[in-house]
Amino acid sequence: MLELKSIRKTFHDPAGGDWVLAGDLSLTVQAGETVAILGPSGSGKSTLLKIVAGLEPLDAGSVWFAEKDITPEPPERRGFALMFQDFALFPHLDVVDNVAFGLVEQRIKRGEARQRALDMLDLFGLTAHARQKVWKLSGGEQQRVALARALITQPRLLLLDEPFSALDAELRSGLRDEFSYRIKAAGIPALLVTHDEAEALAMAQRGYRLVSGKLITLW
């Protein structure tokens, strides 16, 4: 499904020297599989995710999906969905319009997009919040809205950037199980980056640690 082939990414440090984020890095994610990348803050995990999303250019190497080189494709044409730890919900839109955002970008009529978003919110048990502004929701509710927004477009790949790190421990554990269930039910492959090993073990079938631009297999 997803294949990263010999990826290289170096940041130039103005203070002197270069910082290797990815050095000849390769990785595959199979259909329906969740793969976790672990590593401390600043190790380059999030940059790797942005490279896959097409938000960060590569120095060398290529990104393939479904046996097609998608390296030159812009983010909007890759059909992936990205989730951040701060949820990145759009504050000027209410809950239903946040969820419908991607459908509108797919040129689906606004009325139909909103109806499909309402159906999705119903699945997530968020119907009562549909007309609320996103900042009025709790942290857990915001994260579920972010997942609903990502899944409604039926992405080919889900990219999860520390999705639960902004939540408290109790909520994190509950949401982790819910997210795992929903992602598996949707049959969407996922790439998860996190510094929390328990989270990675609970959600991913395979795990790697990113150290000095190289991936070390953990399980």
Binding site: L55, P75, E76, F80, L82, D86, A88, F101, G102, E105
Partner: peptide
Amino acid sequence: SASRVAVARTLGAT
């Protein structure tokens, strides 16, 4: 917010 723009791009926005 950079992450909001990034999410919009991955959701299909040019």
